[in-house]
């Protein structure tokens, strides 16, 4: 896959201030007790919870990449968690962040206990992330969409192809450095000419 196109001339987001380097993920206040499944996840899979956060009534556990599969398996199968329903898998892009560019977010829900949690994994641009589609079949297409839009390198996925964009598309549209207007026809047909055109335009702008 070709590298993402260079940043566009369009107004950056947010305008005129430095881009944020990650979500706030505030720790839970002292008077809010953490649900039991978070403690049992920590006990069952050692090192699986690098941070717990609580914001507006929602719990988030941040899981390191190495423990994703074990943590997901535990969250689905343990009696006190029983997250049998993966409601959404998505990602957010924080380009300047040092520890990894993407937050991959799994929204989980338990039909037995009726509780929700967000599982968050921080991955870098080239870092492989194990696929959870073997644990929740619903994650299959959702992960394909995350790969298509952000270029997160899922491993062990049964069918890792682009899903929304054409199969020969260059670049990953939902990344923050991908131009809103898209690369245009020329990139699709001849990427080298497109790069030259782009550079000559930038040169003209400088002059």
């Amino acid at each position: 896959m070709a590298a993402a196109p260079p940043p566009s001339k369009a107004a950056p987001h947010p305008p005129a201030v430095a881009p944020p380097s990650g979500p706030p993920d505030p720790p839970p206040p002292a008077d809010v007790p953490a649900p039991a499944f978070i403690a049992s996840l920590q006990a069952a899979v050692s090192g699986s919870v690098s941070r717990v956060s609580y914001w507006l009534g929602d719990w988030t556990v941040v899981v390191p990449v190495a423990q994703v599969l074990q943590a997901a398996q535990h969250l689905r199968d343990a009696a006190d968690a029983a997250f049998d329903f993966c409601s959404d898998v998505t990602a957010t892009d924080w380009p300047p962040r040092a520890e990894g560019r993407f937050d991959v977010v799994y929204c989980l829900y338990s039909t037995r206990h009726r509780h929700r949690v967000r599982m968050k994994v921080i991955v870098g641009e080239q870092q492989p992330l194990p696929s959870v589609s073997g644990i929740w079949p619903a994650a299959n297409w959702l992960e394909r969409e995350v790969y298509d839009m952000f270029g997160v390198a899922f491993t062990g996925h049964p069918d890792r192809r682009r899903i929304l964009m054409p199969e020969d598309w260059q670049g990953f549209p939902q990344r923050k450095d991908y131009p809103l207007e898209g690369p245009g026809e020329l990139l699709m047909e001849n990427p080298i000419d497109w790069l030259k055109l782009r550079q000559s335009r930038e040169q003209a702008d400088i002059e």
Partner: peptide
């Protein structure tokens, strides 16, 4: 539902529809 992420500005940082 919509998974909405804000970075504190007047534009959304990320909006994902379930």
């Amino acid at each position: 539902g919509f998974y909405v992420v804000s970075d504190g500005t007047n534009r959304p940082w990320r909006v994902k529809a379930r």
